[in-house]
Amino acid sequence: MTQPGNGAQHDTLQRLERLARIESPSFDAPASERMADVLAEWWDAAGASVRLERTEAGANLIAEVNGVGDPLLLVGHSDTVWPHDSIETTMPWSVDGDTVRGPGVYDMKSGLLVMVAAIERLRNRRHRSVRAVIVCDEEVGSPTTQALLRACADGVAGAIGFESPHPDGALKVGRRGSTRVRLAVRGRASHAALDPGSGVSAIDELVDQLLAVRGIVMDAALGSEVLCNVGTISGGGRANVVPAEAEAEIGLRFLDAPTEESVLSALRALAPVRDGAKVETQLLSHRPAWSPSRADAGLLGLIAAAGRGVDQTITGRPAAGAGDTNLLGSLGIPTVDGFGPRGGGAHAVTEHVSLASLGERIDLLEAVLVDVPASTV
């Protein structure tokens, strides 16, 4: 295993701290601009052609590095789940031996460093072409950047995501699809004692609709398991008023596209049980199921072969969580995720990353870009 020297570790730590101190919660456009400016500076110095594209959520970075063959697409995000001032309160920056803590260091500012640090090592060497895209709204489902991801995926040989790996360092090949749905019911208000017959209870209707949802996701005819979680329920106001409105937000996870489409079609077709009630199903966010393919396995095999050249054993398997690679893998592009360094505590006050693993991932990406012939993906 190749470890970065003390000087390289110091530079990497400085960079990671700089990114961590640019607190960049989703939908904070000015914060995303600050992140994009710093990253653009580093990518430009590494010899990339850099441009920023903006959506209502903020700034997104696209970098192109000329090389051999069709490009590999490197995918990351600059937003985090952490609010401003977390680094001064709940998530202070700290370094304890190999363990680095701070908001977003694991998910996924360390992964962003892996990308650019490996690119910096490629000057004056034969290497494959690279395209990188760093979006600003991944943590909330990439609602404004999915079109950008599709555009950046045009003509690529494969895609590598820099989210965190499995706890043992294994890469992620295949991810459950993730969809959030709002089920909204409108009834009719009335006095619950003096005129109950004139009312239509939106809450009662919602309860029956949620039972119908449960039946849909547990249908034995579905091709695979569906995870369903009713995350929020709201409605009504007073016990003496028949409620006119109620809604629930539902989280769904899918293993394959046919099951996903069957369930979502059934949800769109939900009809009121009560006369006078109205039911609306609204898709809040959607990441399609990415089922591992033979092409994905081929890309994993090439990464594993490059890993052997730097004394690293690389494996991969499916993951439960969703990310931007769901879209790319579902499009049939050879895709692997989890190329970020080992650590833990994503989205929690225990968030941390391994500095040694950060160095290993830089070594591995360098080996992939230099040692893997472009014609083999």
Rank of each mutant, 00 (worst) to 15 (best):
Val241His: 05
Gly199Pro: 00
Ala189Met: 13
Val226Thr: 10
Trp43Pro: 00
Asp208His: 14
Arg253Ala: 11
Pro4Asp: 09
Leu206Lys: 04
Ser78Pro: 00
Val181Glu: 06
Glu351Asp: 10
Arg268Asp: 15
Arg214Asn: 14
Ile87His: 12
Pro243Lys: 10
Val95Arg: 09
Leu52Glu: 11
Ala348His: 11
Pro243Arg: 09
Cys136Asn: 08
Ser354Asp: 11
Ser330Met: 03
Val207Met: 13
Gln3Arg: 15
Ala57His: 07
Ala306Trp: 05
Thr80Ser: 08
Ala153Met: 00
Arg342Phe: 02
Val226Gly: 09
Leu264Thr: 02
Arg274Cys: 01
Arg123Thr: 13
Leu369Ile: 08
Ser32Cys: 03
Arg128Ile: 14
Gly7Gln: 14
Gly197Gln: 11
Ala319Trp: 02
Asp168Glu: 10
Thr99Val: 15
Ser129Ile: 00
Ala46Gln: 04
Pro165Trp: 06
Leu74Val: 02
Glu366Ala: 14
Ser49Asp: 14
Asn66Tyr: 00
Ala322Ser: 15
Gly215Trp: 03
Asn124Phe: 10
Ser178Asp: 12
Arg361Gln: 14
Asn240Ala: 13
Trp290Ile: 04
Leu61Ala: 06
Leu302Ala: 15
Asp219Gly: 09
Leu39Thr: 10
Arg51Asp: 08
Ala246Pro: 05
Ala170Leu: 01
Leu171Val: 02
Asp204Lys: 08
Gly329Leu: 02
Asp324Gln: 07
Gly197Val: 03
Glu260Phe: 10
Ser94Val: 07
Val135Gln: 01
Leu13His: 07
Asn124His: 14
His286Cys: 03
Leu252Tyr: 08
Asp154Asn: 12
Ser291Lys: 09
Asp28Ala: 07
Lys278Gln: 15
Val130Gln: 04
Arg131Met: 05
Gly359Pro: 02
Thr55Leu: 03
Ser164His: 14
Val377His: 08
Asp85Gly: 06
Tyr106Trp: 13
Arg186His: 11
Ala132Gly: 11
